[in-house]
């Protein structure tokens, strides 16, 4: 299997296919991270697009290939912050059309999943932005706390405490929800 480093080197030398491979490798994470702060799909797309362009034009500056992904995410976070500041006054409610784009099935189980996700979105939205992004970086790509502290320019201990505090919040939410479900089941019986 080819190393990521070889794709970066080839992209630096202008190989378009390798560049597309790199973007393909990053795309899910770019989307998930953009989603932590931006509520409209158009804003998410704009942040992702700007990030790809910046990666393309600045790739030559990347010297340490181990930090390629960290570097790309830093660019994305800057783009997200710019868009967020511009659109600060925008309504923060999530556009339901996003879910229509994500799922293609209309059967009940799928609808149930969507409802669960909206629930989860709600609880995720109770986390602060930096807490949310730490949770996503930790769970989607299993970054080390050290990596996350570099990306967000935060002290490593701050990152750790924010992560575990957020995790506690999520845990509490799920425990309460399970309790409620149990109670409902008992009532029905």
């Amino acid at each position: 299997m080819r190393s990521l480093e070889s794709y970066i080197l080839e992209s630096k030398n202008g190989n378009q296919e390798s560049f597309e491979y790199l973007i393909n490798y990053l795309q899910n994470d770019l989307y998930k991270i953009a989603y932590t702060r931006l509520t409209s799909i158009d804003d998410i797309n704009e942040a992702v697009q700007n990030t790809i362009i910046r990666i393309y034009y600045n790739l030559k500056k990347v010297k340490n290939y181990n930090y390629f992904k960290t570097w790309a995410i830093k660019i994305l976070i800057n783009e997200i912050n710019k868009i967020y500041k511009t659109n600060k006054k925008r309504d923060s409610l999530k556009d339901i059309s996003y879910y229509e784009n994500t799922y293609f099935y209309n059967d009940i189980s799928q609808m149930q999943k969507i409802e669960n996700d909206i629930d989860f979105d709600k609880v995720m939205n109770t986390l602060k932005y930096d807490e949310k992004i730490i949770v996503i970086l930790k769970y989607t790509d299993q970054y080390t706390f050290e990596d996350i502290s570099k990306i967000l320019r935060l002290n490593i201990n701050t990152v750790k405490s924010k992560f575990f505090r957020s995790r506690e919040k999520l845990k509490k939410y799920y425990e309460e929800r399970n309790k409620q479900n149990e109670n409902e089941k008992i009532k029905k019986k």
């Binding site: 795309q27 989307y31 799909i41 998410i44 797309n45 992702v48 697009q49 790809i52 784009n101 949770v135």
Partner: peptide, 23 residues
């Protein structure tokens, strides 16, 4: 649960299109 939730966050078609057009 969090991992499962994040796994399900697939790329929407419009984002896929934007990525492909940008490239």
């Amino acid at each position: 649960l969090v991992r499962e939730y994040l796994k399900k966050k697939e790329l929407p078609i419009s984002t896929k299109n934007v990525i492909s057009d940008t490239c």
